[in-house]
Nucleic acid binder design. Sequence first.
DNA 1: TAATTGAGCGTACGAGTGTACGCTCAATTG
DNA 2: CAATTGAGCGTACACTCGTACGCTCAATTA
Lengths: 201, 201
Amino acid sequence: MSVSRSQQKENTRRAIISAALAQLSADKSFASLSLREVARESNIAPTSFYRHFKDMEELGLVLIDECGLALRQLMRKARKRFEKGGSVIVTSVITFMEFTELNPNIFRILFHERSGTTSALRAAVAREIQYFTVELQDYMVVKGFDTEAAYAQAEAMVAIVFNAGAESLDAEPDQREVISQRAITQLRYVAAGAKSLDLLV
Amino acid sequence: MSVSRSQQKENTRRAIISAALAQLSADKSFASLSLREVARESNIAPTSFYRHFKDMEELGLVLIDECGLALRQLMRKARKRFEKGGSVIVTSVITFMEFTELNPNIFRILFHERSGTTSALRAAVAREIQYFTVELQDYMVVKGFDTEAAYAQAEAMVAIVFNAGAESLDAEPDQREVISQRAITQLRYVAAGAKSLDLLV
DNA sequence: TAATTGAGCGTACGAGTGTACGCTCAATTG
DNA sequence: CAATTGAGCGTACACTCGTACGCTCAATTA
């Protein structure tokens, strides 16, 4: 009945990570989360935390990684959806808004730590968003934009979508549809503007 | 040589407010600022703080108000500038980027508390940004857009400008120009897109 | 089987927190 | 001039926090 040692360690590690994610909410940011709180929630002694992470910052980086992973999966999902037909913009916004509704805390941690107090976390979040942006940029390049115009367009779109996501976090459920529709309109402005001002050929 | 009592009280109040603002930085958010730290910096006893504010949240709301005021003054400045001629978009972006460079902490508190942990502060920041957006919306309505299209356009522009401001906070000085130029490009996309898709007449 | 390893625990410490309570003493009021 | 008011202070208390240290005891290794 004995459990392998490394297996057990991995279990505890996962327990810590999910304990941390579970505690994050609208009223509890990562910065306000203490090592002891995480330890309590994962049913380990405070000092045992150090067997897995050097400090809270290291845990934070892992959390951001998890969130980034979720974001990348989201992108893949959106891509699959609109490859089956339908408007790229509409599909992307719908997919993204679904995501923020189903995993508000994952989105929250990204959005909050983006302007957070720990520069390592800020950098990590910036990297994840950059990844997201570059992916979109590539798509625009294929459509015939030069790299700079494609990046500007992609960045603007990401800013708009994230802004809508943030707005929806505090909004009443019946406002979400309005927010989505507006984001779609805004993305269309960007797409149409970029096309008329900067599309080559 | 005696100083009026209410005068003295107001002085201390101002001291508390500036002490708080002075302590905020890239590494110190309002949430991580303690009552005792503020008291120390303002040269009063911790308990004297309560003679002026019910708790830190009340101070936070006042700080957001101050920042909102600064933001509104900024808008007026931009307006004056471009009424003297020149591109509205270019002037606005330049004015805004000047602001974030000269008062990084004021911008930081707004940007950070927007996704913060205290719902009252989040609401207060949202209100200030909303004010900013509506002001821009009015301008678009005058240009001939209907109210909804004008709001969508204004909101997108605010999201883009704030995004650029946030980016510039962590950027090297020589990157600021690139960020500004990109923001200008992005705003032009929105303006051109909105014009071609939604402009009446 | 005997020795080693290492995850997890309990204790303990110093530092920092918010705030209750009661005092002082100068400005204000009557 | 006497009484009242209230900003500011010091003390004190009951927390929470991160983490240093040394132990245990099951899984692993040799």
